[in-house]
Amino acid sequence: MKSVFMIGEQRSGSNLLRLMLEQHPRVTAPHPPHILQRMMPLLPVYGDLGSDSAFRRLIADVCELIRRNPVPWDQVELSEEKIFSRCRERSLVAVYGASMDLYAEAEQADYWVCKSMQNIRWVDDLERYFDEPVYIYLYRDPRDVCLSFTKAVVGEKHPYFIAKKWVELQRLCLDAREKVGEKRFYSLSYESLVADSCGELGKLMDFMGLDYRETQQEFYHSRAAWEAAHASKLWENVGKPVTNSRVGRFRAGLTYDQIHIVESVAQDIINELGYESEVITVTDPLEFSTELIHQYDHVNKDLKQAVMMHCEPKDLARRSYQQALLEEISERISA
């Protein structure tokens, strides 16, 4: 089974690419429950995973997390016993890998793709556990990422904090590219993908050792696209054909000051990835004092609350269902 990890930051076209890849008969790419991202901080709850009871409890919780995913894994019946028997070590990464393998086998696929973008934080664990895993680094102009996050139910809402996280994740990806090497690491910009989806997807498939299929461009007709598009406004665009209409929207969607903040935070990596600064070219980067960041934090919290108040009840309920499990697990620490 070949393991493929899509890395970078959300709001960069990862669902679009996931669905394109999944249209290949040898590839499966389920909507991710973000196992490592959500469960790694909770590992102290379980104690010594060398204990069968502790390790089985972790497996049971991961299975429940998957069952509560906003886009369900209907294609596979998760077996805690099968996961337990497949783990080559007592670790969360092993449970994650076994779960993905079971899904791929149910789909009769030779490759599985996970688009849990923050998996880059655990690249050392991935490199150690998986057999020559492949990485697809998908990146997008941080100003468009910022605009997208300001409207999304997830993530930060103030440009300063959106840009800080974007920089952190891009740096982790670029560092991993140096460590892993070009043989197993593919870099792709969102802008290139939507400008020439046939050409770019063809090159990516060739990198993965697979043939390109024209039907991959018709991803928006698939059941997976329909499920994602109807599960949340976050993913509603995957039910439509590829378009480059969302490239450069920040020019109309962000204010001059917001663009100035993003470019001041992300200037070095903006240049490294081949984007061009617009505000910084005519004025100096901003300096962020502790007091100013504190002010931004208050605004960020207010903006998050405002977004949640206008979230669709069904979307909120799907997310709350998974979040409730994480809170329940977290409470075991005090218990």
Rank of each mutant, 00 (worst) to 15 (best):
L65Q: 02
G97L: 10
S79I: 06
E132S: 15
L147W: 10
R56M: 15
Y129R: 12
V45E: 07
S51Q: 14
G97S: 13
D141S: 02
Y135N: 03
I35T: 15
V95Q: 02
Y46P: 01
W73E: 06
E132D: 14
L92Q: 04
W73Q: 03
V95G: 02
E64M: 13
I136R: 02
Y139N: 01
S116D: 13
S79W: 10
A60W: 04
S85Y: 06
L78N: 09
M100S: 01
N69T: 06
D48A: 09
V93Q: 04
D101F: 07
M40P: 00
C63H: 05
V113C: 08
L147T: 10
I120R: 00
D52S: 15
L42C: 07
E132R: 13
M117S: 03
R143I: 05
R121T: 13
Y137K: 07
V71Q: 02
P44Y: 11
S99W: 03
Y46M: 07
S99N: 02
L43C: 03
V93D: 07
C146Y: 01
R88A: 11
E107K: 09
Y135T: 07
Y96G: 03
D141A: 11
G97V: 08
K115Y: 04
K82G: 00
R90Y: 15
D48T: 05
S99A: 15
L36C: 11
V71P: 01
Y46S: 01
C146D: 06
R67H: 14
I120T: 02
P41C: 11
P70I: 06
I59W: 06
Y103M: 03
E132M: 08
P70T: 06
L36D: 01
K82Q: 11
R68D: 03
L43I: 15
E81I: 12
Q108F: 01
E132H: 15
P133N: 13
S51E: 11
D124I: 08
L138N: 08
Q118M: 14
I59D: 00
I35M: 05
E105P: 04
E64F: 04
L147Q: 05
L126H: 06
R90I: 13
E81S: 13
S85E: 12
S79Y: 08
G50T: 08
R86M: 13
